[in-house]
Structures are given as C-alpha cells and as structure tokens.
C-alpha cells in the first residue's frame, strides 16, 4: 500500500511498452504473410466502380509508390512503427483517402460508451446475483430465478439482439430499430442528443447484458462458495456480526478480487465491440468498423483497430497492476531487484 516505488512503476512501464511493441510488430507481419496485394484490391475496386481502368499498370505502380510498398521491408517496418506510435495508421483503402485514425476516432466513442456502459451494468448485476445465489439469507425466489435466468447466457448475443428488436422495436415500438442516435438530432452536447443516444443505446446494451451477466454470476458464485467456506467467514458469524455486513465486508469484498482482474481484461477486448450486435443494430462502433474492414480487406483499418484493441488491453492491465494493492493489501508493489 501507499507509495508506488519508482522501480516498480518503471518495470510495469517497460512491460507495457514491450507488449505494445511486440503486438504492433505482429500486426505488421501477419498481413504480409497474406498473398493479397492491397494495390490490386484498390485497382479492383476502381475497376468494379468504373467498369474498366485505363493505364492499370501505371496506376498500380503509382499506388504502390504512394503506399510505400516498393520500399525495402525493413524501411516499411520502421516507418510503420513510427506511424503507429504517433497514431498515424495511414489511409483507409476502402474509404480512400480518409485517414484510418479519423475512422477510429469516429467509431471509438460509440463503442466505448456502449460497451463500457454494458460491461459496468453486467459486472454489477452479474456479481451481485452470483453473490446472492450463494448467500444463505437470499430470498428463495432469488435462488430459483437466477439459475433460470442463466438460460439467456447460452443464447448468442446476435439472437438476443434480434429477439429484443422483435419484441421492443418491431412489436411494442418502444425503442428504435437501428442507429446510434436519431436522424433528427444534431450530434453535440445537447440534452436532446444525449437522450437520443441513451434511447438508441438501450437495446444493444441490454442484448449484451442479458447474455453476458451469466459469465460474471457463475464466476462469482464459485468464488463466493470458496469464501463462504473460509474460516474468516465462519468467525464473522461467530462474532455476531450482522448478516448483511458479513455479506458485503467479508464475503463479496474478498470474492470480488479475481473478478476485478477479469474486468480489466474484458475492457480491452470490448473495444473490438460485439461485432455482430453492432452490426444488427447498425451501430457505428469499432465492431462494425472492423467487420466492414475485414470484408473489404482494408488492411490499414484492420491494423489500426487491432492496435487500438491491444493498446487498450495493455493499458487496462497496467492500471489494474497499479491499483490492485489498494484493494488487496496482500499484494504489494515489490521493489524490483536489479
């Protein structure tokens, strides 16, 4: 607890940088193992649009030069590393000449908003329900209802999404079918816009929550059973503490610790979005961006999105490493011996 030693911070930072560097390198290598030539694809797209392309050889050479595909590999790699670190992921080949970074910048807030909101809701609901499943004093109804609700966990989010759309949008007409905000509102920090975003985001978020809360609930249930058998829980009862106090301060407080690590790992993953959920709700987030990029073989976008995902995961783990000693006194920021 207390101050974070500089050596520990350095050590974590080096790990973070190394992770990001290795990931960036892999992202660069993998597409280069593919036999597809991005210049060919662009030309193909132009040909598909215009019927035929004159001077195709010249255009191809021009494109290759513009994209730096003629440079020696090592130079391409170094350029790539520098650009990646400055968040310059180049131009999208599919929506040429939009910079990839602006595509990501447009999509990321939507995904972060939707996903983090649904993750937080899921985390809270899932862990609470998981805890109540184990707690001896939970109402009988809770103990019957929660396992029954777990059925939803086995439904893929795409189906739950369609189901919710069918019930609440198509039949009841309570929520809009698609989009992230209404067509009539101007994006900006106005109350109307925020309202519209929440209104549009509700169903996609719910479709994620109902299929993922089981993950947390079941994990929490297992952890709670372990904690319930611990001697300190028994002693807490022997101390005559109030049952609710025991539940929060002794049981959940200890059982939640491994779940927090899982939470950090999920944050990174979720930047990728629930690809299919975003797809069916026509929600313009990272998932949809990635999905479209894969369909279009838009390498710069795929690379850029992958990099952002890895960066987010690494950052989330970094943050958890730093805050963990605050929530678990047994973990300390050990001074790293040289």
């Amino acid at each position: 607890m207390g101050q974070i030693p500089a050596s520990y911070l350095m050590n974590r930072l080096v790990t973070l940088s190394l992770t990001v560097f290795i990931a960036a390198t892999l992202i660069w290598i993998i597409p280069r193992l593919s036999p597809v030539d991005p210049a060919d694809i662009m030309l193909g797209r132009m040909a598909a649009g215009a019927g035929s392309v004159a001077n195709s050889e010249e255009i191809l050479a021009q494109l290759r030069a513009n994209f730096g595909l003629d440079d020696p590999l090592i130079l391409q790699y170094l350029k790539y590393l520098w650009n990646t670190l400055t968040f310059n992921f180049g131009l999208s080949t599919a929506s040429f000449p939009t910079p990839v970074s602006s595509l990501i910048a447009a999509a990321l807030p939507w995904t972060l908003g939707l996903m983090i909101l649904s993750l937080v809701i899921t985390f809270v609901i899932g862990n609470l329900l998981g805890a109540l499943m184990v707690w001896e004093r939970s109402p009988k109804l809770v103990k019957v209802a929660i396992p029954a609700a777990m059925v939803f966990t086995s439904i893929p989010p795409i189906l739950s999404g369609l189901l919710l759309m069918w019930i609440f949008s198509a039949k009841l007409r309570w929520f809009p079918l698609t989009g992230a905000y209404g067509l009539t509102v101007e994006p900006g920090w106005s109350w109307d816009f925020v309202q519209s975003v929440l209104y549009h985001g509700f169903l996609p978020a719910m479709s994620i929550v109902i299929v993922t809360f089981g993950f947390w609930a079941l994990g929490m249930r297992g952890l709670m059973i372990t904690v319930q058998g611990e001697d300190y829980t028994k002693l807490a009862e022997a101390k005559g503490l109030k049952p609710r106090y025991i539940l929060y301060k002794y049981m959940i407080r200890n059982a939640i610790l491994p779940q927090i690590t899982a939470f950090a790992l999920k944050i990174g993953l979720l930047v990728a979005g629930q690809v299919l959920v975003e797809r069916i709700f026509a929600y313009n987030g990272m998932g949809k961006l990635l999905y479209d990029a894969i369909l279009d073989q838009d390498f710069p976008v795929i690379q850029g999105v992958s990099f952002v995902i890895i960066l987010m995961t690494a950052l989330a783990v970094f943050v958890v490493d730093l805050v963990y000693p605050l929530i678990d006194p047994r973990i300390r920021h050990e001074r790293v011996s040289a």
Partner: peptide
C-alpha cells in the same frame, strides 16, 4: 457478547483485506 468462539484455523480466521 455472551459466548465467544476461538477457531481452529488460526491462519485463515481473519479477513485478509
């Protein structure tokens, strides 16, 4: 307050956090 219990597992009888 009237009857107290000192448990067997000294190692794990206290809340670690």
């Amino acid at each position: 307050s009237r009857v107290s219990y000192i448990p067997q597992g000294a190692m794990n009888s206290l809340n670690p956090v």
